[in-house]
């Protein structure tokens, strides 16, 4: 798999609304509160072995990691407009928005 970043800084991305927890034992580094949410790529952070494989001692291909920025109030239906939350998310959890 290529580790060149698919998304550039500023790209609008949606976090997959996926809940692998329902499919059995798994390890996930994408916080539940951003799943299905749309954010903006701040920058690619480099490629790292996929922790979802590492957790099970499987071969872990490197996946591109991004800093993705979200508006904070819509996530919780509370908070102050303009406040944000920035999360490290692996590329396979992101799709174009």
């Amino acid at each position: 798999m290529s580790t060149d970043p698919r998304f550039a800084p500023g790209a609008r991305v949606r976090v997959k609304d996926d809940w692998p927890e329902t499919r059995g034992p798994c390890h996930i580094r994408t916080p539940h509160y951003v799943r299905g949410r749309t954010g903006q790529v701040v920058r690619p952070l480099g490629a790292f072995p996929n922790p979802e494989d590492l957790a099970f001692a499987r071969p872990a291909p490197r996946r591109q990691l991004y800093h993705v920025l979200f508006e904070q109030p819509p996530i919780w239906d509370e908070g102050k407009a303009g406040d944000t939350v920035m999360v490290e998310i692996f590329e396979h959890w992101l799709e174009e928005a």
Binding site: L45, G46, E88
Partner: peptide, 14 residues
């Protein structure tokens, strides 16, 4: 109020 709070959720390799 005019300061943006940016929460940084440290979830991966940094």
């Amino acid at each position: 109020d005019d300061v943006e709070i940016r929460v940084v959720d440290s979830t991966a390799d940094y």
